[in-house]
Amino acid sequence: MYVAVKGGEAAIANAHRLLADRRRGDRSVPALTLAQIAGQIALAVDRVMAEGSLYDPELAAMAVRQSRGDLIEAIFLLRAYRTTLPRFAASRPVDTAKMLIERRVSATYKDIPGGQLLGPTFDYTHRLIEPEMADNGIVAEPERREPPETTAAPRVTDILGDEAMIEADGIDDGEEPADLTRSPLAFPASRDLRLQALARGDEGFLLGLGYSTQRGYGRTHPFVGEVRIGEVEVEVDLPEFGFPVTIGRVRVTECQMVSQFTGSKSEPPKFTRGYGLVFGQLERKAMAMSLVDRALRADEFDEERRAPAQDEEFVLAHCDNVQATGFVEHLKLPHYVDFQAELELLRMMRAERPAEADSGDDRASEKEAAE
């Protein structure tokens, strides 16, 4: 039965000391600085900010270092810190049409107002390890040029909207959006709550679901209307001033998927939307999010929900990697009493098993041996 484990506190303290030692690594190698982490593995930092629901590159870099690069652990750390912060206002909806763009691509139009802008991307690399990476990652310095001026550009979906070829964009009703970080998720969830959950959701989980919608497990046949990355201004309304005030800028990735058309007796056929918006440069996450968002809108278009990606409760209840990690990793904690209880039950069931069942098993064993 259960036997108390002595010396647990000392063992835990030793484990913490060992963790700190392993985290530091070889002392002959300079320790990583937060500036190095935020600047050189920025995409990892961006993911931590996005799924940690807190835009702060320095804090996210700190979490990445503390977690030894375990991004889900870093996300957990950032969320835990976020709970200590006051919430003093809700910002106005950001206008991504006014984004200061550094990357912008569309798969639906070749020539778009403002032009296509490749920006920093792996899309056209050969996916071969570069030998220069062995030399502390030092590569030949490119010729320094002044960065191009970034200008605002209209969204591609606005072009379709002007022709009434796509469903209308969302309308701001003036109400403060729901806050998933302060209210539990309830079903059915409003779309603003769903988008929050997807923005915080695990990238790999959403990527798998998004992929499933393209392979027939959902009614999506999408085109990338546009993926854009850049900075947007965050504004809040201050009653004392009577007008919105810009409190800063955040770097975001936005994706709008143009999906299959639909129509009704009163509405002509038109394209529908899937939407994704996340902190930082995370276009794979934004694309997966937009695919899943469109799949979860099945009821809006009277579509039959048959695929996992169309099941709101399945998707939203399982996409959060912090919750999933806690539930899976709690299995490492002591379950001695539970296991011993089940073991004793199994022994009793075997002891009470009818004798004829055992003899039948013996005859079957003899027959197998003879064959």
Rank of each mutant, 00 (worst) to 15 (best):
Q40V: 01
L43R: 03
L43H: 03
A44D: 05
R47I: 03
M49H: 01
M49L: 11
A50M: 02
E51G: 06
D56Q: 04
P57I: 02
E58H: 11
L59I: 03
L59R: 07
A60R: 01
A60V: 01
A61H: 03
M62L: 09
A63L: 03
V64E: 01
R65C: 02
G69L: 06
D70S: 11
E73W: 02
I75P: 01
L77W: 00
L77P: 00
L78N: 05
L78M: 10
P86I: 09
P86Y: 02
P86C: 05
A90P: 00
R92Y: 03
V94D: 00
V94T: 08
V94E: 00
D95I: 09
D95V: 07
T96C: 09
A97T: 14
A97H: 09
K98E: 07
I101R: 13
R103D: 02
V105H: 06
S106W: 08
A107P: 06
Y109C: 02
Y109S: 04
K110P: 00
I112H: 04
L117W: 01
L117P: 02
L118W: 12
T121M: 15
T121K: 04
T121F: 12
F122C: 05
F122Q: 11
Y124K: 07
H126C: 05
H126P: 13
R127M: 09
I129Y: 09
I129E: 09
E130K: 12
E132N: 06
E132Q: 12
D135T: 10
N136F: 10
G137R: 04
I138R: 09
E146Y: 03
P147N: 09
P147D: 10
E149S: 10
T151C: 07
T151K: 11
A153M: 08
A153P: 13
A153Q: 08
V156K: 13
T157S: 14
D162P: 04
E163H: 13
I166Q: 06
E167L: 08
E167Q: 15
A168Q: 11
I171K: 14
I171W: 14
D173Q: 12
E175P: 07
E175Y: 05
E176Q: 10
P177F: 07
A178Q: 12
D179V: 13
D179L: 14
L180T: 14
L180I: 11
T181Y: 11
T181V: 15
R182H: 15
S183I: 15
A186W: 15
